[in-house]
């Protein structure tokens, strides 16, 4: 039930942000559609028995995002240099990085961050390891140094 209420609050906020109108009719329509979406979501939760759990430290998450954006910019510049090189000098490789010490949400964040950084793409998660395809050797080395997973471990609650 707590989940439904928080979902309703988020949806109502989204409605107001997107419409920017405060006439009674529009607000009522917003409440109706937010409630309808909540009802659908509850039905789906009852079917597959999964509840999204978001349990991270928000301040540290903000700091992680700032760091991630910096990494993305650096990786973008590296990959763009490879693209514009007159003759290609790629060294694609596939390797596995450990993802232990992370919750399920942490592992998803880790895999998504790897993919978001150009030059590395996560292709599989198996036995607490993530299989990664890397475009160039420096990108692979960067990831294997494990800075990202260290920062993610600090986001884990307690």
């Amino acid at each position: 039930m707590k989940h439904a209420f928080s979902l309703f609050a988020v949806l109502a906020g989204l409605w107001i942000l997107l419409s920017g109108e405060f006439q009674t009719l529009l607000l009522v329509l917003g409440v109706i559609s937010a409630a309808g979406v909540c009802w659908l979501a509850l039905r789906m939760d009852a079917k597959d028995g999964e509840y999204p759990v978001v349990n991270v430290r928000l301040l540290r998450l903000g700091r992680y995002w700032l760091w991630l954006i910096k990494e993305i910019v650096k990786a973008n510049i590296n990959v763009t240099r490879e693209i514009l090189r007159p003759e290609l000098r790629l060294s694609p490789s596939i390797f596995r990085v450990p993802a232990d010490g992370l919750s399920e949400l942490g592992q998803v964040t880790y895999a998504n961050s790897i993919t978001l950084t150009p030059g590395t793409v996560s292709i599989n998660i198996k036995d607490r390891h993530i299989e990664v395809h890397a475009l160039i050797q420096p990108a692979a080395d960067d990831l294997q140094r494990g800075e990202m997973v260290r920062r993610l471990r600090r986001l884990e609650p307690n």
Partner: peptide
């Protein structure tokens, strides 16, 4: 090949 093109596509998608 396909996997290297995936990296190129992510340049546009992010930065």
């Amino acid at each position: 090949d396909f996997f290297t093109r995936l990296h190129a596509a992510s340049v546009t998608d992010t930065l």
